[in-house]
Design a protein around this nucleic acid. Structure first.
Lengths: 249, 249
DNA sequence: TAATGGTTTTGATCTGAATCAAGGCTGTGT
DNA sequence: ACACAGCCTTGATTCAGATCAAAACCATTA
C-alpha cells in the first residue's frame, strides 16, 4: 500500500520548476514569484483519480506540473465528451467562479501547483503580469477549442485519429526540444476509451482506425501505447490539415 | 444603389451605446471611456459581406454593436465548420496577433466598433479594466466553445437543432429583458446552410429535423425564419440538456 | 501456474445522417 | 405577369460509424 498520494508532494523552488516559463507565472519577476511562492502548495494525484466533479465547489486553481488531466462533460444519459486535455503548464480552474464546470480527472499520475482561489484572485488584481499571461493562455485555449470543433464537426474517423496523434506528437516534440529529423516516437497517454471521448467516437471505431493507420504504414505500434511516426507530413496529410510543414513552432 | 456602407457609420457617444455594459469597455470609468472614444471608429457591413479572410492581415479589433457575424474554418476540400457566432457586445480579433485565424463574415447587416490594434494594445497594457474584462469575456467564450464541443461530438441531429434553437431563444430573451412567461418568439438569424455549418450537419438534415420538431409541436414556424417556442422546457428536453429550469440567468 | 479483470481487437449487423436528385416557395428585376 | 436566383423541403438510396457480440491480450494477484 502507498501513502496517501496527497501527502507526498515535494515542495519545490519556483526557480527550478519545469513549467516556469510556460505556466501562468511565466511572466512574473523575481519579486512576484516570491509572493506566489508563499501561497502555492503542491498536490499529487494518482492515475484515475478525480480532481473535482463538475458542479462541486472548487476553492483552488492551479497549474499542471507533470502528468495529464482531462476535462469532461457528461449528459444525464451517460454520453461523455472530453473538452480539454490538460498538459504540463496548462491552467486548471477559473478565477471568479465558485464551482467546477467540468469533471477534472487525472489520466496519469499528476502533480499540480495549486493556489487557493481567493489569495490568487487578490494577487491577480495586483499583478498585471499574471492576468496578462492568463489572458494569453486562455486565448490559446480558445483557439485550440475551436480547432477541435472543426475536428468534431467535420472530420472523418480516420482524420480524427490522425489529428489527435499529430497533436500529441507535436507536443511531445515541443517538450523534448530535440530538433530531430528522424521518426517521431511517443507514448499514447490515453486509453482507447479516452480517445473516443475526445474524438466523439466509440472505442471500437478508435481501435479500428488505429489498426487501419498501422496497416497503411502511417504509424508503427509497439505494444498498444508506444507509437512511432515514420513521416510526420504523411500523418498531417491523413489529418486533413495543411500538409506544408507547419513545423513545430 | 446604396452608398458604400462603410461610409454610413454614424459616430455615437459611448454614453448611449447599446453594448456599453456588456462589451470589452464594460468596466471602464468615464476617463478610460474618454480615451477609448478617441481611438474608436465605426464600420458598417452588409449582410453577406466578409469582414476578413482567415490568414489575412487584421490590423484592428472591435466589438459587434448590432447584427451578427460568424467565425468559420475551412478545410482545403471545402468542408467548413462555424466556430463562433458573434452577437452584439462580442469581441472580434485577438490582441497580439497579426493575422485573422478565421473567416469573419457578417450574416446580417452589422455595425462594429473598431480600434486599431496597436493603440488598443497600448491602452490595454495601461488600463487593467480593459484587460480584466477581456479575460472574463474570453473565459466565457471558452466555456461556450466547450459546450459546443459536446453538441458536436455527442448529440444527435435532432438534439443539435434543439440546442441551437434554445441558445438563440435564450439570448433573445436576455436582450428583450422582458421577464415574460408566455411562449418565446424569435427570428432565426441563420440560413439552413449556416445552421448546418454550425452544427456539423448537412443542410438537408437541418431542414428535415426542423420539420420534425415542427411536426411534433416543439416549435411553431411562420414562414421559414419566424419561430415560436410554446414550451421552453420541452425544447431544452429535446436538446438533451438538464431540463430543470436553467432559467435565463 | 492459473484465475481474474481491465483493455483492446475484430467480426457481423444495424442505423442515422450523408448523398444524390427533384421540386417548391419567395422575392426581385424585367 | 413572367423568368430567374436563392433558399428550402422532401424523397430514395447509400455508407460511415454505432451497436451488439465474442475473443484475444496483458498485468496482477491467488
Amino acid at each position: 500500500m502507498m501513502l496517501d498520494p496527497e501527502t507526498q508532494a515535494i515542495p519545490r523552488d519556483c526557480g527550478d520548476c519545469p513549467i516556469r516559463h510556460r505556466a501562468v507565472c511565466a511572466r512574473c519577476e523575481a519579486d512576484e514569484l516570491e509572493l506566489l511562492d508563499q501561497i502555492k502548495y503542491y498536490r499529487n494525484f494518482e492515475a484515475g483519480q478525480t480532481v473535482v466533479w463538475a458542479g462541486d465547489k472548487m476553492d483552488f486553481v492551479g497549474s499542471v506540473v507533470s502528468g495529464i488531466a482531462t476535462l469532461t462533460q457528461t449528459m444525464e444519459d451517460g454520453r461523455t465528451q472530453m473538452v480539454g486535455l490538460m498538459l504540463p503548464s496548462d491552467f486548471v480552474g477559473r478565477p471568479g467562479r465558485q464551482t467546477a464546470a467540468y469533471d477534472v480527472v487525472a489520466t496519469s499520475d499528476m502533480v499540480m501547483c495549486c493556489f487557493r482561489k481567493q489569495p490568487f484572485e487578490d494577487m491577480m488584481s495586483r499583478t498585471p503580469h499574471i492576468a496578462q499571461r492568463l489572458l494569453e493562455m486562455t486565448l490559446d485555449e480558445l483557439d485550440a477549442a475551436r480547432e477541435w470543433m472543426l475536428v468534431l464537426g467535420r472530420k472523418t474517423a480516420r482524420e480524427k485519429i490522425a489529428s489527435l496523434l499529430s497533436i500529441i506528437a507535436r507536443r511531445d516534440a515541443a517538450l523534448n526540444i530535440a530538433g530531430r529529423q528522424g521518426p517521431m516516437v511517443f507514448v499514447l497517454p490515453l486509453t482507447r476509451e479516452a480517445m473516443a471521448d475526445y474524438l466523439g467516437l466509440t472505442l471500437e471505431t478508435v481501435s479500428r482506425q488505429i489498426s487501419a493507420l498501422k496497416r497503411d504504414g502511417v504509424i508503427v505500434l509497439e505494444g498498444k501505447r508506444h507509437v512511432t511516426v515514420p513521416d510526420f507530413n504523411r500523418l498531417l496529410d491523413e489529418a486533413g490539415d495543411d500538409s506544408d510543414g507547419g513545423m513545430l513552432a
